[in-house]
Design a protein around this nucleic acid. Structure first.
Lengths: 152, 152
DNA sequence: ATTTTTTACTTTTGTTTTGCAAGCAAAAAT
DNA sequence: ATTTTTGCTTGCAAAACAAAAGTAAAAAAT
């Protein structure tokens, strides 16, 4: 293979990128929990170590799943934004949620489940679009005019 | 948390179970590549080490994602079968496939992509059902009459 | 303008998970 | 009865992950 991927299988190759303990958790925190800066992530109760966080953010940026922007009037803080490539993992995250609700409550009775999960399950495509739109609206403030002209 | 799960988040909790390097690959090999015995897995080109394979199979069995059966007339070979809990990960695997096709071909141009992926994307629920049915038909031979009476 | 705090990391030092190679006992095939 | 196959386990090296501390630059407070 000799390009870092285990095989030619699309599933295995996807997992070669996001199939570790933290990548999808980071992406989920961005998409659903308003996390956008380095400290946002460190303040989550799902405590990821800062060294791993730094390396995962770098790796995900390298694959174009997220990108860093500087907010205007602050040269220190970085805002991490999901790209289209990252946002297109939304269906994967949704299906993991459905599976969790159906199958792992027996091991973990205290799962925090959205009350509207049944609705989401019946309207997957629509709900997925709304999640992505909501994200983009929330994050629009961080996208400078000059960025907005480029394809994300 | 104190039950082995990182948080109450359904996504994170699903990843606490199948979010490692090999679990979903093993499940994929069972569902799509006819792997059913220990040596079947070891003969795959996605070479998983036997110690890890053994520990993952044990772990997945513990979570009820797969189960072991003895084929009639052979007391040595074990057949590993996906349960309903395992089969219900099919949508996750499908979405990973779609993401792969759309987003990682640029890093991995030689992906083996099914010619019918576009059809699958437009008929997700139907294709998912067919995949599961096909799996069950293929594996029916290993399910003894006595097992078949119990819920899978 | 100087000090303090915040932010975004890096470094160090373990520990755990993964990977490789070999070994092994029971069952099946010859 | 001997050889091969099957389903693992064991021992050790390498890589990933984790906890804690440290650091340098920017921002905020004084």
């Amino acid at each position: 293979m000799e390009n870092g991927f285990r095989s030619q299988c699309p599933i295995t190759s996807a997992l070669d990128i996001v199939g570790d303990k933290w990548s999808l958790v980071i992406i989920k925190q961005m998409l659903f929990e308003e996390k956008a800066t380095f400290t946002d992530f460190t303040e989550s109760r799902e405590a990821i170590a800062t060294n791993i966080l730094a390396s995962r953010l770098k790796m995900l940026e390298g694959f174009g799943i997220l990108r860093k922007v500087k907010p205007p009037r602050n040269r220190k803080t970085n805002i991490y934004l999901l790209t289209e490539k990252g946002l297109s993992l939304t269906p994967v995250l949704m299906e993991l949620t459905f599976w969790s609700k159906d199958q792992i409550q027996e091991f973990h009775p205290n799962l925090n489940l959205d009350k509207q999960l049944d609705h989401a399950r019946k309207n997957k495509a629509q709900v997925c679009r709304r999640i992505v739109e909501n994200y983009k609206e929330r994050m629009a403030q961080w996208i400078s005019v000059v960025d907005a002209k480029k394809p994300v």
